[in-house]
């Protein structure tokens, strides 16, 4: 573990230097606000952003990804045999990722990288990626990350954690991947580790103190699934929901996808696209039967998955990192903090 000081005057030059070996992703502002995007060669990551509309999950898990290809031409020997599509898994780095987004990627990893199954697309992308986090000195009003097992200075899932100190960044290099990235940038002014850690701790405490929003999840574990499932409050929670996919798409921990084939002439490609449990199509069977045919069932599913099923299955807390994006973006203001409170405090009436 070491600390590096990076003078902001040298920052852009270092970032540019790293482009030789890394494809860069980072926050940029366009007409619709801040987005985490692949950075063109002349674009620097914006290190003073409040938050991106969508999370950084798309760096590893694009909204549309071609996964398999095949030929439909029966003259070809290997026609109709699906083969993995070409993907670019050369080193990439995501600069300025928020600590809670990095934590979210660790939660998503539990799904894509298990002992039994390994999603090759996500895992290859994960291995190719260096996560350069930016600590949040001034958390926003919707940030409740400290009560979800992460926080503005959380190091979980990061290779480097940067702290903005006005004229410079203080970088805590956490992994060999992080070291390699710092070297590629030519950032090598080492800072005293002990002093730097003290500085980090002070800044972390200051940042955490400004967080006023939180959720309580302590009682969720002891509830039985069926009690929560059959609880009477779901119709009220779901009434205003319009069943758009906004909450799931902006969510850094939502990992569900749909598979689609697209053919042109004799070439066929198989894609996976983000899917959303808010859509009736998500569960509609080929027969036409839909086990989650009603809006209330779908809303319940989202919260039960995040706040109960995940918690029970992995014993790693809830499947929410407290970024507040769904609270902010929901067109009808369904607030996961309120739903969590309702679930946490629910007692079945005998």
């Amino acid at each position: 573990m070491k600390f590096i000081t990076i003078d902001k005057k040298d920052w852009a030059k270092g970032i540019d230097k790293s482009r030789g070996t890394y494809q860069l992703f980072g926050p940029v502002t366009d007409i619709n606000g801040c987005q985490i995007k692949a950075l063109d060669a002349d674009v620097q990551p914006e290190m003073e952003y409040t938050d991106s509309v969508l999370s950084a999950k798309s760096v590893l898990f694009p909204q549309s990804e071609k996964i398999l290809v095949t030929s439909l031409n029966e003259a070809d020997d290997d026609h109709h045999i699906m083969k993995r599509a070409d993907g670019d898994y050369t080193p990439r780095a995501v600069i300025g990722i928020r600590p809670y987004d990095a934590r979210a990627i660790q939660l998503v990893k539990m799904n894509f990288d298990t002992e039994d199954y390994r999603d090759p697309y996500w895992c290859d992308a994960y291995e190719a990626t260096t996560f350069v986090g930016l600590a949040i000195n001034k958390p926003g009003p919707l940030d409740f990350s400290t009560s979800t097992g992460t926080g503005p200075f959380s190091e979980d899932g990061l290779d480097i954690l940067l702290a903005d100190m006005d004229d410079k960044f203080l970088a805590k290099v956490l992994t060999p991947k992080g070291e390699a990235y710092a070297a590629a940038c030519g950032f090598n002014t080492e800072a005293d580790a002990k002093e730097s850690q003290v500085l980090f701790d002070v800044m972390r405490k200051d940042a955490e103190k400004t967080i006023s929003s939180s959720v309580e999840t302590d009682k969720l574990k002891d509830k039985t699934i069926l009690d929560l499932y059959e609880a009477p409050f779901w119709d009220d929670v779901a009434f205003s929901c319009i069943n758009c996919g906004t909450c799931t798409y902006v969510c850094p921990t939502c990992w569900c996808f749909d598979i689609q084939d697209e053919n042109k002439l004799k070439a066929s490609s198989r894609f996976r696209n983000w899917d959303t449990c808010m859509s009736p199509l998500f569960t509609r069977h080929a027969t036409g039967h839909n086990p989650r045919g009603e809006k209330t069932m779908r809303v319940r599913q989202r919260f039960m998955h995040k706040l109960k099923y995940f918690l029970d299955k992995y014993d790693s807390g809830i499947m929410c990192v407290g970024c507040g994006r769904c609270v902010k973006s929901c067109p009808v203001n369904i607030d996961i903090r309120q739903v969590c409170e309702t679930m946490n405090n629910y007692e079945k009436k005998e």
Binding site: N32, I242, C244, G245, T246, P280
Partner: peptide
């Protein structure tokens, strides 16, 4: 440029009182 960041969440469609088709053409 207008639609460059559209994520196809269909919030526009679902918030619209006119869009009441039992199955939308995109679905």
């Amino acid at each position: 440029e207008l639609t460059q960041n559209c994520i196809r969440c269909y919030a526009c469609r679902n918030a619209c009182p006119l869009c009441y088709c039992p199955t939308c053409f995109v679905d």
